[in-house]
Amino acid sequence: MFPKMKEQDKIDILKDILFEDGHKFEERISERVELLEKTIQEREKLSEKVDPIIAYQLEEFKKSMPDTLGPTITETLRKEIENNKDIVVDALYPILGKMIKKYVAQEMKLLTDKMNSQLSFFSLGKRKLKSFFSGKKEEELMLNDLASAKIEQVMLIEKDSGVLKASYAKSKAMDEEMVSGMLTAIKSFVEDAFNQRNQNLELIEYELYHIHLQSFATHYMAVVLSGNFVTSAKNKLQDIIFDFYNSFMAMNVDLVFETKNAKKSIQPTGKRRIEREMAKYFGHAKL
């Protein structure tokens, strides 16, 4: 027989039996919470030390990347491009397409401008008359006008030194002194190479431009033209060049013949005066 238990003892024993699992569970949770707190605190401490190191390493990597990985990346890209030419072309096509489109649009604009000027009342009347007297169709005459050669730039160059004497241009887009030097070098090279000092280089074609070269004894003239430079245009241009050159020589004739006997020194014709003459001859020339 068990000694007679008090009521309170009985309740405590019953509680122990009923809540034993609950105690264990409570202890486990408390352990986990402690572990979590510890981990969080340690990470904060760790990151304080580790973060600057990682940042420094990243910065160093960024700096050294072009040297260390650059050649490898370039080589890989080169190989990829070589192996997948079609894909590359496909990728570039839209970009090139845009460029071509832009170029065509610009050319169309130029053509439209030209056509507008051709369709003006004055031009129409003139063309009708020309068509009536020449027997050519108006459309044909208009197309001829549209494609005709235009003088863009004129340079008078000293033949031996390549020094630019004077120039005329509607809009200056290049260093004429360097170009005249280079044209002289090309001209000299070709004439030397063919071993024909009495023959001259007469025409250079550059994309949409023609450079007509007309040689004289001490100078030569380079005329940059756009449009259709046909034989008839060449003939007209040569006439204009000869007329101008005669005028230029007339300006200098005193210098050539009278310098020795002149009482006062005769100055060579100034650049500005030659350029005024050039503008007069070439500015409104129709080829």
Binding site: E158, V163, G181, F189
Partner: peptide, 26 residues
């Protein structure tokens, strides 16, 4: 003064320089 500098190709034989490049040199 505008100096137009003609940089001629190097040659071991100075005689081989094209005469046309030397014309009108200042």
């Amino acid at each position: 003064m505008s100096l137009i500098l003609w940089d001629l190709e190097g040659t071991d034989d100075i005689n081989a320089v094209r005469q046309s490049y030397l014309l009108g040199t200042h």
